[in-house]
Design a protein around this nucleic acid. Structure first.
Lengths: 414, 414
DNA sequence: CTATTTTTTTCGAGCCTCGAATTAAAGAGG
DNA sequence: CCTCTTTAATTCGAGGCTCGAAAAAAATAG
């Protein structure tokens, strides 16, 4: 049902627009905001005055404003870094990291912990996340800033409500209720999100020239993940975080996948699959649990050096990815792709066979794609994506509502 | 960029909501509208008074209002059938049909024409559509009603702006600019849409209990099409009508598809593929151009009668569909499916192998699906979908804007 | 020191929604 | 037959919001 609009929704929406252009552009004068948004000068004046009163915005007067122009000089406005803090939590294989981030998006504290995710009991895993979060909340309190939002990025499948980790390769537990645990411990809104989705958000923010309305971030590591943005919106499944690209079928009755089924793209293109093929092991062998980066590096070097099972393994990986992307592009039309993660270091071995396979599919035959890009280090992107999502939430749900609306929000969530 | 909100957007939006609940529920009293929408009685009173003045709504006083209730009786409001008309055009293999539909969604005139779509020159094809449309516009004018919107449903791929038929199996021409041709001929907003997408819209309207937020309509006929609704929204490609399910890859380097590539789902599950396999023809044989319904019916009967190449052909069709759906469900999570079109008559032969194949994929392993449904006759659904889309456009873009806003709209499109 | 230019704020007009009060239109009951 | 009760719909004033015009503020130019 389409929602009705009330008079105060107008102000909420326009506050949101003002905050969002400032987040995108950094600092703008009131006149700039008029030009960018289309709002009238009087409205911008009223809204910014309110936001400054609420210490969400502040005037930034530095010496080098514009230089020698005639007339009253513009005064730049910017988001007030001290308006709030958010926390970005990232859990990956054997490692938990967290960052405290101010309202301007700057990291002001961070924590890193090693922990054996594969073997840790459920409670201890959850507790580790809660403990690390508690540390950062305390640090934030020390400098007098309130943490308004927590986003937890993790490899694996989350539910569509972003409450639980349904399944993950880094732990044997399923349906782990991280978000609720953190939320009840501290009373701060928290969601848990798929790591590839966070990477996609980060790319959209960092490089809007290339990664804006439609693009894919494909993670090449032990498994295969994907973050997909369509029409400027993160694409998610209907009941899960969705877009499990790695488990599209490549070869019916094919190689054994980590998920227990056969023939998935991942069963050819994941690190364990490349390793299995390179070592000449049978396709129905159970996937190795974890393979060191150095070992994969060595495999790639051998493949580069001479033709043999290693090169063939990478060829098959590229082929699987190519067919998978081809099928995907039949559904969504082609879009720019960036390959993320440690596996992207061997992209030179993968790209040729991948393009060849794609050309054999119906998807993407009409359109020319921009060249593929790679980014081997996924970790900073995941953190930035989490931070970006958390800040956007604060912008939209808390600060756009204003003092009166904030009470509405509390009632709603209660 | 998020759009700003003006004061009059509020009224536009709330008018839209009122119109839309009336379209969904048929007839409602003002009090009912308050309850359904959450608008206050005074606002509903003001909005409905305007809409009645503009002859978009009307009071329906029939004898059997509510029966014996105390107090002032409610007076039902309904959409005024004479507020406008729209035209639903449907082009399929060798046939062009068109219907004139009033604002209440009732067909008030229709035309049907046989024409050899495969051989007709480009101009004549376009002209046929224009001519049929002209006839209905004349009929509408005769009863004093203005045609406000035309939607053209057709099998094939359209562009994302819904202006052109990019490719279609029913003609050899590509990039046929139907929408612009009709729009310039009559000055009435026109779009061209994929037939399966229209089927999905019709299902969403007819059977919201089952087909509402997430579902698929898979068309089984000469080729394989799909209409996909996610989160209540029709899913479309980024540059085309998208969701070319039939051209997802099933078997690398597999059977020759009508699209020129190899191994597409359609190359196993389309009528021509089933026919090719049943007749024992090699997989690289060029697809037959068209196969009569009776011939497919006979094939299915043979397959039901005894095991043999016919039954095996249907088994492989089911297998291809199963793997395709499995891959799709990896991306979007499982959703109810309805199989549409002539091929659905043989669904009894397809379902078993299809389920078996799906179970071998990662998609849809966790969730139980409702039983599949079938609907062999696609034509009424396509027409209803087109009509529904056209009426929704009138509701939202024209009537919600009101007299003042309508001028805005003209300026915008100019 | 005054005129000019540009930015920002202030003020009134015109919408819109909402709640309260009012009017309208029926049945219930003596 | 007339009055009371009940429910539906309209009217009216209060309070928001955006906008354009006018005014105020803050700089440079001469």
């Amino acid at each position: 049902m389409t929602a009705i609009t009330r008079s105060d929704d107008v102000r909420r929406q326009n506050r949101r627009v003002v905050i969002s252009v400032l987040r995108r552009h950094g600092r703008l004068s009131r006149t700039d905001i008029c030009a960018t948004t289309g709002l009238s000068a009087s409205t911008v004046s009223a809204i910014t005055a309110d936001l400054i009163d609420e210490t969400i915005l502040r005037e930034v007067r530095d010496a080098e404003t514009t230089g020698a122009r005639r007339g009253r000089p513009q005064v730049a406005l910017g988001l007030n870094p001290e308006a709030a803090t958010v926390i970005a939590l990232v859990l990956s294989m054997n490692s938990l990291s967290a960052a405290l981030i101010n309202y301007a998006g700057e990291v002001i504290a961070s924590v890193q912990r090693k922990l054996p995710t594969l073997t840790l009991p459920r409670d201890e895993l959850v507790h580790a996340a809660v403990a690390v979060t508690g540390d950062l909340i305390a640090q934030s309190a020390k400098i007098g800033m309130r943490v308004r939002r927590i986003v937890f990025g993790v490899q694996g499948i989350t539910d569509s409500g972003s409450r639980m980790l349904l399944w993950s390769p880094i732990t044997q537990h399923t349906d782990v209720g991280f978000a609720d645990a953190i939320e009840t411990a501290f009373g701060i809104p928290t969601t848990i999100e798929n790591d590839c989705n966070m990477i996609a958000l980060a790319l959209g923010e960092h490089r809007p020239d290339r990664y804006r309305d439609n693009f894919l971030a494909v993670m090449l590591s032990h498994g295969i993940g994907m973050g997909l943005v369509l029409k400027g919106q993160l694409f998610q499944g209907t009941t899960s975080s969705g877009a499990e690209f790695g488990h599209m079928n490549h070869v019916p009755e094919g190689a054994l996948c980590r998920c227990g089924k056969r023939g998935c793209v991942e069963a050819y293109a994941g690190n364990y699959a490349i390793w299995r093929n390179a070592k000449g092991l049978p396709e129905e062998d159970a996937p190795a649990v974890d393979i060191g980066d150095e070992e994969m590096q060595a495999l790639a070097d051998t493949a580069r050096d001479h033709d043999g099972p290693e090169r063939e393994a990478y060829r098959r990986a590229g082929e699987a990815l190519g067919y998978g992307l081809g099928s995907l592009f039949s559904l969504i039309d082609p879009a720019p792709v960036i390959f993320i993660g440690q596996g992207a270091r061997a992209f030179d071995l993968i790209e040729g066979p991948m393009r060849e396979a794609m050309a054999k599919t119906a998807g993407g035959q009409h359109h020319r794609l921009p060249p593929f890009e790679t980014e081997p280090d996924e970790r900073p992107l995941i953190r930035e994506g989490c931070a970006s999502l958390a800040l956007t939430f604060v912008d939209r749900e808390i600060f756009a509502a204003g003092a009166a609306g904030a009470q509405d929000l509390q009632r709603e969530t209660a």
